[in-house]
Write a protein that binds this DNA or RNA. Structure first.
Lengths: 129, 129
DNA sequence: ATTCGTTATACTTTTAAAAATATAATGATA
DNA sequence: TATCATTATATTTTTAAAAGTATAACGAAT
């Protein structure tokens, strides 16, 4: 910087001059004791749907196969009927597909999620922060 | 159990017969890169307000003093003005009090939280799960 | 001046969650 | 019947977050 230019720095290191605060959040489905369904599980279901494989879905989400399997198993045993059916052996080594109930659950969650997005947007503007 | 009593168990271990699913969620305030304010921090502010002490607030929440201090410091440096002022030494060893801005932020967050509670209740009934 | 309980800060240890690893089971296909 | 990639499951290792520990600074009250 040439020495005939002078600057006055008003902001400081720890508190940037302009910060944009937004309202964000998460919704999920739970019982009295545990979480049943949320963001991550829905994405997992969707990736299983498009790949036909638990392993591929897990890889795409950088999640261990074990974790993916545990989540699916948990959902399958906590909804009235399973959301995912899987088979091992055969062509490709095995496969996993969504049940009609699984697809319905995804759609239902998206419906809620869309309403929630509207809520967040509406309440983000004019926040007193 | 006497042997003349017979029982028929219909539910199974992994899937209790009747499960009540409810919608739950959390909201918070964030910038593009980090969380600024949520549930826990609001509770911390409130407990500092009523106890006049960071240490007591932390103890009540079973949180380490360090964690409490870090959270407060983070808030103080990320809002336009500090939410908490603190002093060491003197009567009682030191103290912490909320600023007017701190009290305003609590009220503002509660306002949002109340609206969110309504949202959750409205969308919990008739959920397709 | 000494005591006291708290604030402020650095450093170490614990803990729980997630990932990684290992291995058996499976069934279509070549 | 040998191969293959995957499902299913147990066990071990890694990791990051939180808690715990230690210590200095502080100032009112005695």
């Amino acid at each position: 910087m040439p020495d005939y230019i002078y600057t006055l720095t008003v902001e400081n290191k720890t508190r940037p001059m302009e910060q944009i605060f937004t309202l964000n959040g998460r919704i999920w489905v739970e019982t009295a004791s545990e979480k049943i369904l949320g963001h991550g599980r829905i994405e997992l279901l969707e990736r299983i749907h498009q790949s036909g494989s638990i392993r591929q879905a897990a890889l795409q989400m950088k999640m261990s196969y074990k974790q993916a399997w545990d989540l699916i198993n948990h959902m399958n045993t906590h909804f009235k009927s399973p959301l995912v059916t899987s088979h091992r052996g055969g062509k490709g080594g095995g496969n996993a597909t969504l049940t009609a109930e699984g697809l319905r659950i995804i759609a239902e969650f998206h419906r809620l999620q869309d309403k929630f997005k509207v809520f967040l947007k509406e309440n983000s503007v004019g926040m007193g922060f």
